[in-house]
Amino acid sequence: MQRRSMARRARDDLRTEVLDIAERLVVAGGRLSMPELARRTGVSRQTLYSEFGDRDGLAAALVLRVTDRFLDGMEAALAGERDPAAAFAAAAGAALTEAATNRLVEAMLAGDAAVPSVFGSGAEPIVAAAAERGAGYLRRSRPDLDDADIDLAAGTAARLTVSHLVLPRGPVENAAREIGTVVARILRV
């Protein structure tokens, strides 16, 4: 049993290392190349193919990882605030800042065709997941609010955040504050 656990840990470590390197390559403007990743990680291409299937499988794993990390950051920003307006302003600020500093996140949210979509077309699934997490935050922190208002506020905040990414209207702080204000007005808090 312990031998299997050690092998699993080694596999997880390799997967993490490969995805770290793949993300750095993509963010730096490179493309995913199995031979290059094999060279940089010191393993055979066959090892990479065994782990990820193919280049598309690797890209899908990378997109899922980046998406989860991005959504976790937004959720942490929400959780750091009690007031819904402040929480959604913090989450929007975190999302816009991450997108501004991480080319892969920006490309995913802007629906860049060069980024493989494992979810379907464009940023819609990421927006839906962000809205779902925002609604979850509101349901946990403010169970007194109406469910329809919660869904509307969280969905609107997610879409406005992507809108500000695609068509910026000034500094991130201003956009984040505006999004928080919209959420407060929808919720009447």
Rank of each mutant, 00 (worst) to 15 (best):
A10L: 03
Y49Q: 14
L96N: 07
L160E: 09
D147R: 15
T67I: 02
A89Y: 00
R185C: 04
L167V: 13
A123D: 12
A99S: 08
L152M: 14
P35S: 04
R15T: 15
L62K: 06
L104W: 06
A89R: 06
E132V: 00
D56G: 12
T97K: 07
A22R: 03
A128E: 12
A86G: 00
T67Q: 15
Q46M: 11
A76I: 01
A7Q: 13
G120Q: 00
L71M: 05
I186P: 13
R39F: 00
A59C: 04
R65K: 13
V166L: 08
V172G: 08
V66Q: 11
A76W: 02
G29H: 10
V127T: 12
R40I: 00
P84E: 04
D54K: 03
L167I: 08
R40P: 06
A100C: 01
L58R: 03
G80S: 12
G134A: 15
D13A: 09
F88K: 03
V105D: 07
V105P: 07
R188S: 11
A123P: 04
G180N: 05
A114W: 02
L64S: 12
D56K: 08
Q46N: 10
A99D: 08
S121Y: 01
R159E: 15
Q2A: 05
G134H: 07
A154M: 12
F88S: 11
L187F: 06
G30T: 10
L62D: 14
E75T: 14
V105Y: 01
E17C: 00
R15P: 14
G53P: 13
T181S: 06
F52Y: 08
A175G: 07
R69W: 03
R15A: 14
A153R: 12
